[in-house]
Amino acid sequence: MLIIPCPYCGARPENEFRYAGEAHIARPADPEALSDAAWADFLYMRTNPKGRHAERWRHVHGCGRFFNCVRDTVTDRIERTYPAGTAP
């Protein structure tokens, strides 16, 4: 079970958290201006890397905050976590 350092609460076991998909996929400011292809890309296309991955977690059984996390998908090592809305 991973130990995930919540940026607000500190290190906690994985079962306090819920995964929330890839990070840094901002909702377009004006969705209506996007082509169908661009909108579909925002909705569905993810990088799914082997290795370093920026992703979102929520400390759902804790502070309830969403935050970002850089994890290696091969080794499961967590490089760092940082607040939502900040740069990786």
């Binding site: 901002a26 309830g64 969403f66 939502a84």
Partner: peptide
């Protein structure tokens, strides 16, 4: 609630 929190915290903070 999770859906609302997600948008409130990350898209419409």
């Amino acid at each position: 609630l999770n859906h609302m929190e997600d948008y409130l915290q990350t898209e419409f903070p």
